[in-house]
């Protein structure tokens, strides 16, 4: 285990870590800091709780790759190029069951629909006037649940011009670092007891479960979470293939409608 980990564990135990450290730290509005400054500031969150929890689950994913017969380099490659653990898990499941490319494509596409509304809602938070589209496309690649929750929580507290480099500093470095973490997980597969591997797999959904409510600012966001938690398992049992898509549509549109109606009444 790297030396910094115990130190940071201790640090996080002492400080209540549900708030990230340094947004809105009293900058004068006329001060304009460099992009590199914001990039580094984003990078500082690489050892924040969401990042560390992600590393734990990536260790689990790396071991899972090893056990599924996926070689080290392919595991590292897919971590970075897909940058969505659920998609990679579906891919590996498909490979193991001997599915064709088209079948896997459809399964991954159905499970990744979330990326579109996530990016649509994220872009207005991150862009400044005149942010080039290629930058948004690049940042969109690094938008996965961890960085999306992080962005939706952190960005509103920052000046517009600093948001793109700040988010890039966090999300791009996180993805690069994750390649190494997956490699480590691949290497330690078999050393870690299966019970611990199971616990690693539980950490990601647990973390999301705890942080999502804080990223959900509006009534419709909060309701959408409640609907999603309730409908997710239900639809997964009734209509396994399209269950997730239906959960998003029914839960999301329903929550939006209630929120809209409440706003009209207020």
């Amino acid at each position: 285990m790297p030396l910094w980990l115990p130190c940071h564990l201790a640090k996080f135990l002492i400080m209540s870590s549900n708030k990230f450290s340094d947004h809105g730290s009293g900058l004068l509005p006329q001060e304009r800091l460099s992009g590199w400054h914001w990039y580094r500031r984003g990078m500082r969150h690489l050892l924040s709780t969401p990042a560390i929890v992600l590393y734990f689950s990536l260790l689990g994913f790396g071991s899972f790759c090893h056990e599924s017969g996926i070689d080290l380099y392919l595991a590292m490659f897919m971590t970075f190029t897909t940058w969505a653990i659920p998609s990679n898990v579906i891919l590996i499941g498909g490979i193991l069951s001997g599915s064709g490319a088209l079948a896997i494509f459809v399964a991954v596409a159905l499970a990744s629909v979330r990326m579109m509304p996530m990016v649509v809602s994220f872009v207005p938070e991150v862009r400044d006037k005149g942010t080039q589209t290629w930058k948004l496309v690049l940042l969109a690649h690094f938008t996965a649940i961890t960085s999306w929750v992080f962005g939706m929580r952190e960005l509103p507290g920052l000046p517009r011009y600093g948001r793109v480099p700040f988010f890039a500093g966090f999300a791009v470095s996180l993805a690069i670092l994750s390649i190494g973490v997956v490699a480590l997980g691949h290497g330690i597969a078999g050393v870690v007891p299966p019970v611990v591997a199971a616990a690693l797999f539980l950490m990601t959904p647990l973390y999301f479960l705890l942080t999502l409510p804080s990223a959900a600012r509006l009534l419709s966001d909060k309701l959408a979470l409640v609907f999603g938690f309730a409908l997710g398992p239900l639809f997964a049992l009734i209509v396994p293939e399209v269950g997730l898509v239906l959960t998003g549509l029914v839960g999301g549109i329903g929550a939006y409608a209630v929120g809209y109606w409440k706003r009209r009444l207020a």
Partner: peptide, 29 residues
């Protein structure tokens, strides 16, 4: 308003993914 709708759908989808990761997991879990 479309952004608000997208946010709601995204939240519902992410919540759906989380319940799946817990109830219908892969690997050792």
């Amino acid at each position: 308003e479309w952004i608000l709708l997208a946010r709601a759908i995204a939240n519902a989808l992410v919540a759906g993914v989380i319940t799946r990761l817990i109830l219908f997991p892969t690997g050792a879990l």
